[in-house]
Amino acid sequence: MIILLLNSSILGEAYKDKAKDFAEEARDTASEFAKNAKETFGSNDNQKLLAGIVALLFGGFGIHKFILGYTKEGATLLGVSIAGILLSCFGIGALFVWIPTVIGFVEGIIYLTKSDAEFYNTYQLGKKPWF
């Protein structure tokens, strides 16, 4: 009986050590994953891809402009779209809705076809707001 108790206490210590080692390894892996996620999320590739896809899908509302930090241009597209929606009962409103949508679609294609370096230099360093 005493031998069994000694064996279980020795095994318990060994399992505690293994659990501590596993916890330290998991903590290191989690911190490395968080570091890599921050680098990936903050990279220019994601802004390019995100801005391009949003411009293709919701270009008329100027959301892609807000993503890139162009608040004036984004507000302009959003305002023209809202005015077009409000004026759509008149004939001229349809024109106001289509123009921002086409601009956003064209910009989305331009964003996605540029190389990463060219996109970064043109739209993030150069701050070119339109096309």
Rank of each mutant, 00 (worst) to 15 (best):
K38I: 07
N7G: 04
P129M: 06
T40L: 14
R27H: 11
L49V: 13
Y70H: 13
E118I: 11
I85C: 07
Q47N: 15
E73Y: 10
T71C: 10
I2A: 03
K16I: 12
Y111C: 06
K65V: 00
L77T: 00
L112M: 07
G79W: 01
A83I: 14
L56M: 07
I3S: 05
A117M: 08
K128S: 06
F119Q: 06
D116M: 01
I53G: 01
F96T: 04
A37R: 04
A23Q: 11
A23L: 14
G62W: 12
I10Q: 12
A51Q: 13
I109M: 07
F105S: 05
L5M: 13
A94M: 14
W98F: 06
G52F: 12
Q47R: 15
Y123H: 07
N36I: 04
K48T: 07
L68H: 08
P129Q: 02
Y111V: 07
L11M: 09
F131W: 13
F131N: 08
I109F: 04
V102D: 02
G59V: 08
I67G: 06
N121M: 05
G104K: 10
N46H: 06
F66L: 11
F66H: 11
N121Y: 02
I63H: 13
K16S: 15
G79F: 06
L95R: 04
W98L: 12
A34H: 00
F105L: 14
I67S: 00
F41K: 07
I110G: 05
G126H: 09
T76W: 13
Q124T: 05
F66A: 03
E24D: 12
F96K: 06
L68Y: 12
R27P: 02
A23D: 14
L77P: 00
L68M: 15
T76C: 15
Y123I: 07
E32F: 08
D17M: 14
G59M: 03
I110F: 13
A75G: 13
T113I: 10
S8K: 04
V102F: 10
A14C: 01
A37V: 04
F96M: 11
K127P: 01
F131C: 01
L86F: 08
Y15S: 03
A30R: 09
E107V: 03
T122H: 02
F61W: 06
G84A: 05
T101G: 08
K20Y: 11
Y15F: 01
G126M: 06
D28E: 15
L49P: 07
S115P: 04
L95H: 06
L11R: 14
K72N: 13
D17W: 08
F90C: 08
K18T: 09
N36L: 08
V80T: 10
Q124N: 13
